[in-house]
């Protein structure tokens, strides 16, 4: 049981990234793979600031800003330099590997002694339940904020940009600016996933982000399948189903592992 609960918590931690990829992939229709870099960036910033004894609220904010900066660079490279979005993402992701490595100063940093966000509310004696609550708390806040933004006039403009650029231009929307902001939001969500996972697994590793974009894409694909299957139109519900997709993804992995499939395969 604990095994599956652990998978559930990990799924909750990664669902922020799923929301970010939902923004780039489904709303803007941009294949953004800056994710691999910004996820690790979030974890690196978290590890460094935690080790330096910074308070958690400040760390969340700085992590989110770091991720947003990464997304902004991808956005600028894509819109200003007119480089294909996929390539822009690859460029920034590769660049971030060096940035992360020089920030961290070594290939990994354990956080075993640090007080993490997961020990913040010791409501239950079982640590997994506490972790579950923290994961749910973050998901509720992030999904709630995102759902609000996407329902505002600004959010409508964002959603229309990925839908019909000729329409948004004619309606006074600066598509390039929208894409830059969208990529910033997406990557700051991804960095927050890095923030959570680093603390959850008690270490930051320079390679922890490699291929993580696939987990996010998987979550969005599962979520999107559920969304179109159930015909969900309300954006807030769509976000919840994307998060659910992320959790299902981890549970499927857990089932596969418990069946004895070699993870190194």
């Amino acid at each position: 049981m604990i095994f599956y609960l652990t998978a559930l918590v990990l799924g909750l931690c990664l669902s922020a990234m799923g929301l970010g990829i939902f923004i780039t992939m489904k709303i803007f229709r941009i294949p953004d793979i800056t994710t691999d870099g910004s996820y690790t960036l979030g974890a690196v910033v978290t590890a460094l600031l935690l080790a330096a004894g910074w308070p958690l609220p400040a760390i969340v904010v700085i992590t989110a800003l770091a991720g947003a900066a990464a997304g902004m660079i991808t956005g600028l490279v894509h819109t200003r330099l007119k480089i294909d979005a996929l390539l822009a993402g690859i460029l920034v992701m590769t660049g971030l590997y060096s940035v992360n490595l020089s920030l961290l100063g070594r290939s990994n940093l354990p956080l075993s002694d640090a007080n993490t966000v997961f020990t913040l509310f010791p409501l239950f004696s079982n640590p997994v339940l506490n972790e579950l609550i923290v994961g749910l708390f973050f998901l509720a806040i992030l999904a709630g904020m995102l759902a609000y933004v996407l329902r505002t006039d600004f959010g409508l403009a964002m959603r229309a940009t990925g839908n019909s650029e000729s329409m948004t231009r004619a309606l006074g929307i600066n598509n390039d600016r929208m894409k830059i902001i969208g990529l910033s939001i997406a990557n700051s969500l991804t960095a927050i996933s890095g923030f959570l996972v680093a603390q959850y697994q008690h270490f930051t590793d320079i390679n922890m982000g490699i291929g993580i974009v696939l987990v996010g894409l998987g979550s969005v694909l599962i979520g999107d399948a559920l969304i179109s299957w159930l015909g969900i139109r309300k954006i807030g519900w769509q976000l919840l189903f994307v998060a659910l997709g992320g959790i299902l993804f981890q549970l499927v992995l857990a089932v596969a592992l418990s069946l004895g499939i070699d993870p190194a395969l």
Binding site: D153, F154, A157, R159, A160, M167, T168, G172, I173
Partner: peptide, 22 residues
């Protein structure tokens, strides 16, 4: 914008000359 509702499309159109705020 095909995926947005009629209402959402009209909302954006109603803001053509204005800022789309939060």
């Amino acid at each position: 914008a095909p995926d947005l509702s009629i209402l959402d499309n009209f909302r954006l159109a109603a803001l053509r000359t204005q800022k789309k705020g939060l």
